[in-house]
Simulated scan of single mutants.
Amino acid sequence: MMSHYNYLPLEIQEQIMKWLPVKSLIRFRSVSKTWKSYIDSAGFVASYSSNKQHIWVQYYDEQVREERYLSIVDDDTFALNRVNLTPLPLPDYTKYIGCSDGLLCFYLGCTAFFWNPSIRRGFHLDVPIEAHGCLHDVVLGFGVCRETNDLKIVKITCVENVFSAAFELEEEVVNKVDVWTLSTRAWRSLPANAILTKLYFSNPEHAGRLIAIGGVVYWLASEEFPFENLIISFDITTEELGEVDLPDSLANPQYLTISKLRESLVVLQNVEEPNRMVYNLWMMEGGVPNSFTKIFTFYVNTPSEVSLMGFRQRGDPIIRFNSGRLVVYESHSRQIDNLGFDGVGNVSFVQPYTETLLLHDQPNLTIDTEVVQDQLASFHIRYAL
């Protein structure tokens, strides 16, 4: 086979490789040293992204009483082309954080797990949660630096969540930001930012979900005085923390969720009416803060709330009911398509992702769940005494 490719200039071969699926690229690394060197190069790994979107689904199968993982190809065969994946050995009560550059992040207490579902590679990382003699909630974000091609992880330690309710704040007792990079495998603190003095994550368990778009990470947060919804941003490359002002109709106290529609930030606003819920979907235009436009509204004739889990590649929202039912709302026909998860148990989360080669040089993700849970228990015992 190589004799045929020798007739093609290397530049043409490289262009062809950019359109190949991940599984083919992994196999082609064994064809020649030249191909392996190119596929393994930091520039190719960072720039490669398959045009085909997949939907990662995790749910609890009540029949076998265990977590199930599957990947759905987001094309014309949607909901029919499903691939069951080997479950991750995650500890109990691990929560899902988000997706960036094709990587999934999970978190439990003082450990974060990063996993590439396309190539089954990943690693776990100790996350410091101690500050001023207390344990604190942390909010995580991550992405690839566009200049160095290095994976960065940002951590906001929510110091004020503890001290603002019980003590008069001292000047140095404020939220803090730290960054970890894969190349150095070390944490470093960033300078104080004025935004941190007013930032308040009223519910880090929910607000900790991140949305990553174009090298920028977004979280939904609050400004405590006066209490208003706001969106915090962190640029992975410049390491600058910023905020996105919401229009008055969204900033006022209410339940919001944020998501990504293609490469735009969107906000889902729910309004309760008698016997139904009304959901307004707002989009930030051109990445410009305070430029949100309502793009459509849909209704659910049930007192049960729904959660926006993400979007299909063509733009239809994927919605989860509290019962675990998973559907797609077709915005053009205003029809709801059931994805066939009724009766199998509760869907934990859904995440659209694209194939990537990131972490291809990492070993298989091995997790000693007992060690992780014992470490978390020892933290809580130490600070309870």
Rank of each mutant, 00 (worst) to 15 (best):
I55H: 09
L339Y: 10
V350P: 12
S378K: 14
W56E: 04
H380K: 10
G310W: 09
D92V: 14
I381R: 10
N270F: 07
N229K: 02
R27C: 11
T34L: 12
L250M: 11
L359E: 04
L358F: 08
F321R: 14
C158R: 10
N364I: 15
M284F: 09
G345I: 05
L90I: 06
E130F: 01
W282Q: 01
D126R: 11
I129D: 06
V144N: 10
W35C: 10
N193S: 15
I119Y: 06
N346L: 10
A112S: 13
P87F: 10
Y69T: 05
Y38I: 09
S348Y: 12
G109A: 13
G324L: 01
L326R: 07
Y107R: 06
Q313I: 09
H54S: 13
W219C: 07
H380G: 02
Q63A: 05
R188S: 09
G208H: 02
H132M: 07
E14G: 00
G102I: 07
L357W: 11
P89S: 09
P91M: 08
I72L: 13
A251T: 00
Q63G: 00
F28Q: 08
L250F: 07
I119A: 05
T238S: 15
P363N: 00
K36F: 12
R68F: 01
H124T: 02
I258M: 04
I12A: 13
V57G: 03
Y107M: 07
W180K: 04
H360E: 04
D61C: 13
F234M: 10
T197Y: 10
N252C: 11
I156R: 01
F298H: 01
I295G: 02
Y255D: 11
G102Q: 05
G343Y: 03
L90S: 05
G133W: 10
I232Q: 00
D342I: 06
F167L: 10
G215V: 13
L281I: 15
K95W: 00
P247I: 09
G208T: 06
D245E: 12
L265R: 03
R65N: 05
I318E: 12
V138Y: 03
S41G: 14
F163H: 13
W115Y: 15
P117E: 09
Y59C: 05
F28I: 13
K36H: 13
F321L: 10
S378V: 08
P363F: 02
V328K: 03
S50K: 05
Y5E: 03
D74G: 04
L357D: 08
V45W: 07
N51I: 09
V64M: 02
G141C: 10
M277N: 11
F311Y: 15
D92A: 14
L20E: 07
T237L: 02
F321K: 09
E239Y: 02
G214Y: 08
T238K: 15
T302N: 15
I72G: 07
V267Y: 06
